[in-house]
Design a protein around this nucleic acid. Sequence first.
DNA 1: GCTTTTGCACTGACCAGTCAGTACAAAAGG
DNA 2: CCTTTTGTACTGACTGGTCAGTGCAAAAGC
Lengths: 224, 224
Amino acid sequence: MSTEDVWQRGTCDSGRPVTIVAMDSSSTRRQATRQKLYEAAVTLIAEQGFSATTVDEIAERAGVAKGTVYYNFKSKTELFEELLRHGVGLLASSLRTAADTTAERGGSKIEALDAMIGAGLVFIDRYPAFTQLYVAELWRTNRAWQSTLLVVRQEAVAVVESVLREAVEGGELSDEIDVPLTAAALVGMVLVAALDWQAFQPERSMDDVHAALSRLLHGRVGGR
Amino acid sequence: MSTEDVWQRGTCDSGRPVTIVAMDSSSTRRQATRQKLYEAAVTLIAEQGFSATTVDEIAERAGVAKGTVYYNFKSKTELFEELLRHGVGLLASSLRTAADTTAERGGSKIEALDAMIGAGLVFIDRYPAFTQLYVAELWRTNRAWQSTLLVVRQEAVAVVESVLREAVEGGELSDEIDVPLTAAALVGMVLVAALDWQAFQPERSMDDVHAALSRLLHGRVGGR
DNA sequence: GCTTTTGCACTGACCAGTCAGTACAAAAGG
DNA sequence: CCTTTTGTACTGACTGGTCAGTGCAAAAGC
C-alpha cells in the first residue's frame, strides 16, 4: 500500500477532531480509500458471503466510517460489482500474458496452456479471497449482479478458449475436442484444485499442484 | 422432484449409510415434512445464499407453517447442516455404486473413474441446486458449519481417492501421480464443467459434457 | 392420547442506507 | 496579508425495516 497519510480521527459527538497532514494532490486520496474498501470487502465477502457481510464490517476493516462507503459507492451491491470487474480484469490479463510470453518464446499451444495453469495458480495464491468469492457467486441464479458475472466470466474463459482454438487450428489438438466445454473443465480443474489445496492441503507446494494438473493436461493420468 | 426417496442417514463410525425406510408410523409423517423442508431450502439457498434466504420463505415454499420448521430443526443453521449431510450422502453412495458396478463387470480402474464422472454428472443434473450450494459454501472459512463441510467433503473425495489409489497399486496408473491432488482436480473438473454447462451452455447434452471430460481423463487433449 | 402441525402475534437484534455536520485545502476577494 | 467561500472527502448517530427465533392455544393425524 502506498499512501502514507498519517492522520487521526476524532469522534463526532465529543472529542476534538485532531486531524492532520496534508494530502498531495487531489483525487489520489479517494483512490486510496476505494482500494482500502476493496481489500476489506474482498476478504470479508469471501469468508462470509455477500449477504452475511455488513457494510459496517467493511468500513471498520478498512478503517473508514460507514458514510465513506456510501460516499464512494452507490450501494453495497455496486461496491461488490466493481470488485468483481477489477479482480477478473487482473486474472484475464495475467492469463493472457502467460499465453503471449509462451508464444513469443516459440512454445507450443499446449505449453501455453501449461503456462496459463501456472499463472492461474499464482493468481489464486496471491488473491485467494477473490477466487473464493468468484467461485461462490458465479453459479447463483437470481442475483442482482448476474449480468456482471456473465460478462466477467466470459472474459476469463475466453482467453482459454482462444488458445484451445488456435491449438486445434494449428493441428496441435484433435478437432474433435469440444472447445467451450474443455475450456470450462480446465478452468474448473485449476480453480477447484487450487482452492482445495489452500483449504485442505496447505502443506503442499505450488509446484506439487502445478505438476498434478500438468499431468492431467498432458494425459499422463488416464493415458491411453 | 420425487418425494418417495429412500431415506439415508449417515452413521458416524462405519461411514456406511444406513437405510431407513420407515421407522414407525408417527415418524414417517415427520420425515415427509423434513423432506419438503429440505427441498424448499436447497433451491432457495442455492439461488440466494444462506443468509439471504429467510426461514419464512423456506416454510412458505415447503407449504408449512414457520413453527413447523422450528419443531423439526433446532435452527436455520441446523437445517442447513443436515441438508448438506443428506445431499453428500447421496452423492458419495452414487459414486461408490458406479465404481463398484464397474468393478463387478471386470472393468479397469480407469473405466471406474469414467463411470464416476458419469455418475457425478447424473447427480448434478438431478440435484443442480445442491451442487451449486455445495460449491458456494465449501471453501468459505469462518462459517458455523465449517466442520460439517470438512467431513462431508472428505466423504465425497475419499471415494475418488480410493479408486485412484487402487489404480496405482494395480499398476494401472504411474505411482508418480499425486493421489489427493489429482482427486481434488478431477472432482473440480466435473463440478465446474457441469455447473458451467447448466448455467452457460444448457443446450449441450450430458453426453457432450461426459465426452469432453472423458477426453481429458484419457489424455486425449494434451496428448503425450 | 400421544405426536405433530398450524396460525399468528410478538420481540429484540441487526443492518442498509441517510443526513446533518466536520475537516481542510485551495481559490476568491478585500 | 488575512478572511471568506467553495469543493471534496469523510464522519457517525439515527431511522425504518427485516428477520431469526419464541410462545401458545387450538386443530389434525396416527
